[in-house]
Nucleic acid binder design. Sequence first.
DNA 1: CTGTTAGCGCCTTCAC
DNA 2: GTGAAGGCGCTAACAG
Lengths: 348, 348
Amino acid sequence: MRAIRNPRRPTQRARPNLKDVAQLAGVSTATASRALNLPARLDPETLTRVREAIRKLRYVPHGAARTLRSQRSRMIGAVVPSFDYALYARTTSALQAALDSEGYALVLAAQHYDLDTEVRVTRQLLEHGVEAMAFVGLDHDPELFVLLGEFDCPYVLTWGVDGSGAHPSIGFDNRAATYAMTSHLVGLGHRRFGLITAPFDGNDRARDRSAGVRAALAAHGLALGEGCLRQGPISLAAGSEAMRDLLSLDDRPTAVIATNDVFAVGAMIACREAGLRIPEDMSITGVDNTDLGATQTPGLTSIRTPIIEVGRAAAHHLVQRLEGQAFEFSQLLPFELVLRGSTSPPSP
Amino acid sequence: MRAIRNPRRPTQRARPNLKDVAQLAGVSTATASRALNLPARLDPETLTRVREAIRKLRYVPHGAARTLRSQRSRMIGAVVPSFDYALYARTTSALQAALDSEGYALVLAAQHYDLDTEVRVTRQLLEHGVEAMAFVGLDHDPELFVLLGEFDCPYVLTWGVDGSGAHPSIGFDNRAATYAMTSHLVGLGHRRFGLITAPFDGNDRARDRSAGVRAALAAHGLALGEGCLRQGPISLAAGSEAMRDLLSLDDRPTAVIATNDVFAVGAMIACREAGLRIPEDMSITGVDNTDLGATQTPGLTSIRTPIIEVGRAAAHHLVQRLEGQAFEFSQLLPFELVLRGSTSPPSP
DNA sequence: CTGTTAGCGCCTTCAC
DNA sequence: GTGAAGGCGCTAACAG
C-alpha cells in the first residue's frame, strides 16, 4: 500500500472557543459558559442566541480546560484483568452503558493479572483526570489505595465483597458459589474431585472459589487428592492441559470443578480428545455461565454470577458518590447454579 | 448493607504541583518542567535533585493542565460496535496493549450498531481531548468525518479496507472471505444455501460478507433461494431463530453461511434442537474463528480474520502519525479458511 | 440576569 | 543550563 509522508499539522486551524461564541452572540464569556452549564439561570432569549452561535460555529467545549478549571472531568476509569475471553466484557459493557447514560465517559485499562501493572495504569488514569475508579476483585497492592487516597478518588471494588469493610465493594460470594456447586456434586455421589484454577496470587476470585471447593469437601469429610489441584493462566489450552494431567492420575477424579468456564471448556475438549464421555465418565463444572460454556455439547453446568448487575451497580455507586448522594457501601448480589448436561452421578 | 451519607469532599487536600516540586528542589518551575519533558537538556545533578523532589512529594503531573498547555493528551479514542460476544474484544485488547507500550491511554466507547450514536460518542471523546481515533468498519455518518476534520484528528478505519482511498484503513477483504467460503461449499456439492447476516445498514462487514456469498453463488450459476436470506441483531438467539425459519422452508438449504460465528453457533443450536445432524443434514459456517465456534461439537468451520493484527497495526498507524513519522495509508491483511467438522458434502 | 476578573497547572518562548 | 513571565480555554466569585 502507499506510504505517506507526514508533515505533522503544519496549519493548526484554531478551533472556535468560548470567546468566539460569546462574541458572535454578543455576550460575555461568562454568559456563554452559563449557557453550557447553568442554562436555567439565563434569560431564555439570550440562551437561544448563545445556542445559535454554538451551532453556527460548531463549537465543542475544550474538555481539558474545563477539567483544569472545574476539577471535574466527567471521566471514570476502570481497570480489568484482561479483555480476553469476554469474562469481564459484560461487566465492562454494563458499566460503560450506565455511565454513558449519566453523561460520564469510561476510560478503560487492563492489568494482565499483575497488581504492579494495575498501580501503574491507575496512576496514568488519575493523571488523565478520571474522577473515580472501578476495579475487579479484592486483591490489590496497598500502594493502590495510598494513591487513590492522595487523589481523594472514590473507587469501588467489584466481583467480590470485601469482608473487612475497608473498601467499598459490589459483588457476589465466590466462595459460596463453588461451595454450592461442590455440594451439589457430592450429592450426586462424587467422591474424587479435580480442581482447575488460576494462580491465587493477586486473584481473590481464584482463591475464594478454590477455598469454597475445599470447604465443601471438608464439610462432607472429603478432601482434594494428591495432584488433583491444577493451576495455570486462564486459557482454553491451560484447561485442556490440566485435564490431561488429571486423567493421567492413578485414582483419577470423577468430577472436575473449574473456577471459570474457560478452564471448564478446555477440560471438556481434553476429555473429548481422550475419548471420555461427559458426563458419564467425567462431570465438569464451570463458573460465570458464559455462552462459551452454555453452548457446548453437553451444556456446561455453571454458576450464573451477576456480572452485568455488578457493572450497572458500580456505575450507579460511583455516580452517586460523585454527585454527593447517599450510596451503599457494599452490595452482595445473588448467584445461581445452572445445571446442564455436563454433570451427573458418577458411573458405578 | 450500610448506606453512607456523602458530604462530598469537604477537605480538598491540594495535590502537590510543579511549583511545590520546584521549590523543594530549589529550581524554577521551568526547570522542573524540563525534568519531566526534556531531561536531556538538564544538568544531571539538577535533574537528580528534581527527581528526588518528585519522589518525595509523590508528585503526579496534572494531565488536564498539560493537555491544555501543550495540546497533547496522550489519549487515543476508539469506538467499537459493541462489547458483547467478544467479537471486537481481541482487536480492542491488541490496540490497548500496543498503545500502552507507546505510552498512550485508550479511551473506549461503544456505538451499539448506530452511526448517530457513533458521532455523538466521538464528539465526547474529542471533547475529552483524544489525539487520534480508531473506528470499526467503513460505514460511517459523513458528519463523523467533518467532525474529525474540524479537530484535525488523525483516524483510521479498521476491519475493512476502504476501496475509494478516501480514508486510511487497516483490515481484510470481507467480501473475499465469504466468497472463498461459499466456493468451498459449492465445491463440496452444495446447491441450496441459507444466509444469516446482521442488518446491512451501517454495517459494511455484514453487507460485504453477504455480497461475497451472492457473488460466489452467481459465479457458479447459483443464487440464494426465496426466503433464504435471514437478518437479525447479532445474538445466539437471533441465529437460532433464523435457522428455524430456514428449516421450515419447503426446499430447505443444505448449507447455511453465517456472517459471523455468533449467528453460526446459534444456528447449530437450532439444528441440534431440531434433531438434525451437523454436518450430515446441514453444513454450517461462520466468520471470525472465535473460541465459541471452535469449541463446538463438531467444530465450526470459519474464517480466521486477522483481528489481533488489525488492532496492533491500528495502534502503530496512529502513533506513527501523531509522532510525525511516515505511515501506511491502508493495509490489507490476509484471512484464512479454517475447516472443521461443521461442513461436509450434502447427503445424497 | 449578566459582566468583570482572577486564576486552575503547566509549558514554552525569550532572555540571560 | 536556567529563570521569568505569559497564557492555553474555561469557570466561579463577586459585582452590579
